[in-house]
Design a protein around this nucleic acid. Structure first.
Lengths: 197, 197
DNA sequence: CTTATTATGTACTGATCGGTACATAATGGA
DNA sequence: TCCATTATGTACCGATCAGTACATAATAAG
């Protein structure tokens, strides 16, 4: 009954994520987005409404798709090894030293605090969820007897989440994968019971 | 022989630092700077050359002035207590939850990577210097026998520096001073020999 | 083929950006 | 007082920003 849509939203989100991730929100212009996605201006505003709305939708899409990807990998390890696997996989995401992307959520929280309250809040919410993830892993590790420290698990989870944020800043500084791995190993051996690895 | 200068560079730097710190580089417009400093456009460009040049000069001035402030406080503690004092003083700087400033250097590195290479490099250089500071404190603590962990001191220093960066992101997220202090305490008790605090 | 409907590309808008040109104001030396 | 010199405020510049208006292209139903 009417002209069919040519837009591939998934493709657009992927391109938008890449741009926002590497250059941030304000330094990514609408033209950058149009060039990268191949969309015309009319289609863009028909599909997404505004640059701000696209960014928020991209954050949601990113959270969704990375959660989906995680569900596939999950489950092969137990105890502290599961936390280690989680931290390692974060490094892979984050530490391509040539791209220096850091973390989309950390970048956003840092860039947009006090400038774009709505977007800041969304990114902050997703970022905070990481602490709960850390807590889950640490509870499991504690139950498995892999944790040496007497510090309460919630405090350890908070510390772990903060460390993760720090690693993502390291990535943005261009530190190598090895350099980040070294930090993760040091942390794990601080809380670990055995002398693994 | 000519009209005298009315500019107070120190005052201008202080105002500029405040703006760049809270809103970042790109979200701080030239007009914001002129309003805050009370300067006219002519004077501004005569004194600083460009927005970019002002920002770089502000980074230098900030580094200089905070180093000077640090030299005054220094020396009252020894061993691990000195590291603790250092970390605590960082928290004071960073963790006014209402202002949510985070850290000027971390904010800059995160915002400007791939966007303003020159400014990114300057901020990165100053930020990297923190790791050396941590190393000095940790060496002293190690010598005093306050460190339990068998991890090499340089690795511990790297971990500490990364944790500091994470804390500064926490600040940008609006986490309370107490929340940050809790993380520092957890970390210190992980590496500490005694059961202090 | 005609037509209603919707997607798309493009010309345009007003605002704001950083930066410049330049006239004017303020000074100290003569 | 007059002038050389320098600081300052302001009008202006082109570029770019996000966003809008609208003519046109493409489709499917009839």
């Amino acid at each position: 009954m009417a002209r069919p849509v040519e837009i591939d939203r998934d493709h657009a989100f992927r391109k938008a994520r890449e741009l926002f991730w590497r250059r941030g929100y304000r330094a990514t212009s609408l033209n950058d987005l149009l060039d990268a996605t191949g969309m015309g201006k009319g289609s863009f505003y028909a599909a997404f409404g505004s640059k701000e709305a696209l960014f928020e939708a991209t954050l949601d899409w990113y959270h969704e798709s990375s959660a989906a990807a995680r569900r596939k990998v999950n489950g092969s390890h137990a105890g502290l090894a599961a936390l280690r696997e989680f931290l390692d996989s974060t490094l892979i995401d984050v530490s391509d030293a040539r791209r220096r992307r850091g973390c989309l959520l950390v970048n956003t929280v840092v860039e947009l605090e006090g400038v774009e309250p709505g977007l800041h809040r969304v990114a902050k919410r997703y970022l905070q969820a990481l602490e709960q993830r850390c807590l889950d892993y640490l509870n499991e590790a504690r139950a498995a007897g892999d944790i040496r420290s007497h510090i309460e698990t919630p405090q350890l989870a908070a510390l772990t989440a903060t460390l993760l944020q720090g690693l993502r800043v390291d990535s943005r500084m261009g530190r190598s994968r090895d350099s980040l791995q070294e930090r993760v190993d040091a942390f794990l051996s601080l809380i670990s019971n055995s002398s693994e690895r």
